[in-house]
């Protein structure tokens, strides 16, 4: 049956101009061209998109949930990266 197994593709849709592509879901297709067309038929049939990306699922590299702490926690204790960290006297504008 392996000859009929079409690979899996991840679909990203730009819902309108000015917005980024976001992950919409996935589908099976034998190649990139049909993947793009299947994505158009499946994920934009109610006018949800103006542009589509398809990416073979196997081509995506992801962070592992096991690395969650070393990856993402160190950024949680650096409040000076956020504007709310700083106190500005009342009445100062455009800052």
């Amino acid at each position: 049956m392996s000859t009929t197994d079409w690979p899996l593709w991840e679909v990203f849709v730009r819902s309108r101009r000015g917005l980024a592509h976001t992950h919409a879901g996935s589908l099976h297709a034998p190649d990139a061209e049909l993947a793009l067309r299947n994505a158009r038929d499946l994920y934009t049939r109610r006018g949800e998109g103006v542009s589509i990306w398809v990416v073979p699922s196997s081509a995506i590299t992801a962070s592992s949930p096991d690395e969650k702490d070393p990856f993402f926690e160190p950024s949680a204790d650096k409040p000076y990266r956020h504007p709310t960290f700083y106190e500005i006297p009342e009445g100062v504008k455009h800052l």
Binding site: W6, L27, H28, A29, L34, N38, D41, L42, R45
Partner: peptide
């Protein structure tokens, strides 16, 4: 194939 159900219906 299911994807083609959707395409033909469109």
């Amino acid at each position: 194939v299911l994807e083609e159900e959707v395409a033909l219906a469109n």
